[in-house]
Amino acid sequence: MTRFAIEAEGLRKRYGDTHALAGFDLAVAEGTVCGLLGPNGAGKTTAVRILSTLLLPDGGTARVAGFDVVGDPAQVRYRIGLAGQQTSVDEILTGRENLRMWARLFRLGPREAKRRTDELLEWFGLAGAADKRVKHYSGGMRRRLDLAASFILAPRVLFLDEPTTGLDPRSRTEVWRAVRDLVAQGTTVLLTTQYLDEADRLAHQIAVLDAGMVIADGSPSRLKSMIGGDQIDVVVRDAADLPSAARIIARVADASPEIDPDAARVTAPVKDPLEAITVTARELRDAGLQVEDLTLRRPTLDEVFLSLTGRGAGADGDRPAAEKGMVRP
């Protein structure tokens, strides 16, 4: 039987008229990564704050690492790590001093705190900058230091709230590597993100959050099959060629192609990416169309929402949840 590190049932939280969480259900199996995907304001941070005992829900229940977050917060706190949406590192202290302080607060003795600090600095690739003040760190280094702090006790469950938002691609890759390493040690991770790409790379399970509710939940491949998998993008030089390009793409596409006349672009979801790109490239050339760009990519959050709810991710909040075409896998 699967054991769940995180189990939330019907979590609700209201701020005035805003239903930040409106019946949030989630179960994350032990030792896996769950990506909580949603646009700004979907309720990701609220969910993480409730699960990490920072916030009391108005209703519903949640167990983390086997303990109730409302009834037994102290037990939960011994078993979790949290890296919040803002990094909580101290600019005036050095990286080493930051970690040493958090380690002492986790009640490690002075010697053990020192040992663990050195180990984590090494492990997160910060040993070289350990004695520099954090104010001289790059965004990626701060993130990694913050991750290291949340990993001092090697938590059973780790919460990461938008760990890569605002990072450059290189720092993002560094953070991903660190998360993968943590998971390899058996930690269960709940990470929130606005990028399907990120969830797809890291997560075993993706839950799509919209207006405080999980509207789709499953493995990345299952989610991708629901939303049509990879997207093919063709940009033609002459907008007059758009209909012919669309006809070509329609043959390999999973759904009818969308045409964006302003960008002279045709977009469509495809099932078999390799087949799609070879066939499309050949036929575009045979038809003699001038092509500016031909790419294969993951759908954006907006496209995920469009296929799940029939509307973009930006337009949330103005319709009650019941009216939004709910899709449950």
């Binding site: 920072l54 102290a74 706190r77 011994y78 949290l82 803002q86 909580s88 607060l105």
Partner: peptide
Amino acid sequence: ARGVTDRFRSMPV
């Protein structure tokens, strides 16, 4: 505001 208090509060401190 900077999340330091959140980290303290998520720890068994």
